[in-house]
């Protein structure tokens, strides 16, 4: 029992190396408390916001919200104008999203395929950088671009050019182009290498491999990208604010006409509502837009996750 010098040092050391119950473990304790607070805060804020929107929005849902006093069939055919319903805004949004999707589908998917399968390292780097730069552009600046486009057209070829549905759809298409390119590229690149090698070994040409084997395999991921783009196009307000949305246009009269859109109706209601009826309609519109754009984005996420999972195990073999 002799010989071992007793000093505070050796008893102190292990305590410092392995934090144990004796010593307060401040860092993780503080973090744990903060994490619980954050989780409770975010969940309760989301619950309160959601409940409030449902409480005010759900009672307004119904035929009157969309069409007011107008008979629905006549309104949908465009024979009678709708004064106190959100149908024109819904139709405007549908036109807008459809048109933007039509415009973005070719360039977006094509550019994604090019980046994933054909581009050399330099083209990959430069085009990738360009797409990333475009992804960061704020939507209001995209609206400003549309506006300058009109200014240029007025000065050159078409003196009577004005902001319109086609212009807004074009700007929206540019805005949602990057997500579509990134999703398409990621879907193709997530496929196992074995598919490409097998195709080559079977004597397929490169076009056959890409368009007959890889594209069908990546279909879900690409569809997810398209849905993501549609959801983004449906919710964006800032672009259409600068490219021709108005509060009262009725159903869009054509590609070169002004139009109404759901997100703008919601914004306009918050700023300018006069009666309780209008306010209720605003809540209804918010709920409809949430269902429309939210379901599309969530669907896109689900599709992409399915896609990821499908090929996860196969890479282990190669």
């Amino acid at each position: 029992m002799t010989g071992r010098p007793i000093s505070p040092e050796p008893r102190h050391l292990p305590d410092r190396r392995i934090p144990s119950g004796a010593r307060p473990r401040t860092r993780e304790h503080v973090l744990t408390v903060a994490a619980w607070l954050a989780a409770v805060l975010v969940v309760s804020v989301a619950a309160v916001g959601c409940a409030y929107l449902l409480w005010r929005g759900v009672p307004t849902l119904g035929r009157a919200l969309f069409f007011g006093d107008t008979p629905p069939l006549l309104a949908m055919a465009g024979l009678r104008p709708v004064w106190d319903g959100i149908w024109p805004a819904c139709a405007g949004s549908l036109y807008l999203v459809g048109l933007a999707t039509l415009l973005v589908l070719g360039p977006g998917v094509g550019c994604g395929i090019y980046l994933a399968e054909y581009a050399g390292p330099r083209a990959r780097r430069h085009l990738g950088l360009a797409v990333e730069l475009l992804a960061g552009v704020p939507s209001i600046v995209m609206g400003l671009f549309g506006f300058t486009l009109i200014l240029v057209l007025r000065r050159t070829f078409v003196p009577q050019a004005n902001t319109c549905l086609l212009l807004a759809a074009g700007c929206l298409a540019l805005l949602v182009l990057p997500p579509l390119v990134v999703s398409t590229r990621a879907a193709l690149e997530s496929l196992p290498h074995g598919l490409r090698l097998t195709g080559a070994a079977l004597g397929l040409t490169r076009e056959q491999i890409v368009f007959r084997v890889l594209l069908p395999e990546a279909g879900r991921g690409i569809l997810g990208g398209v849905m993501l783009a549609m959801g983004r196009a449906a919710e964006d307000t800032a672009v259409i604010l600068l490219t021709g949305v108005v509060a009262n246009a009725g159903l869009p009269a054509g590609l070169l006409a002004k139009f109404e859109a759901l997100p703008f109706t919601i914004y306009y209601t918050a700023a300018q509502y006069q009666t309780e009826d209008e306010l209720a309609r605003g809540f209804g519109a918010a709920l409809v837009l949430l269902a429309l754009s939210g379901s599309m984005m969530l669907g896109a996420g689900a599709l992409q996750r399915v896609m990821e999972r499908r090929h996860k195990g196969e890479d282990a073999w190669n």
């Binding site: 070719g106 360039p107 977006g108 998917v109 094509g110 550019c111 395929i113 090019y114 980046l115 054909y118 581009a119 083209a123 085009l127 360009a130 797409v131 730069l133 475009l134 552009v137 600046v141 995209m142 400003l144 671009f145 300058t148 486009l149 240029v152 540019l174 182009l177 390119v181």
Partner: peptide, 20 residues
Amino acid sequence: ALRCAAAVTVLGIAAVFGFV
């Protein structure tokens, strides 16, 4: 077709930055 798609994309991006 893929070359055209990539070209349209680049053109669009250049137009946004160029015009503004």
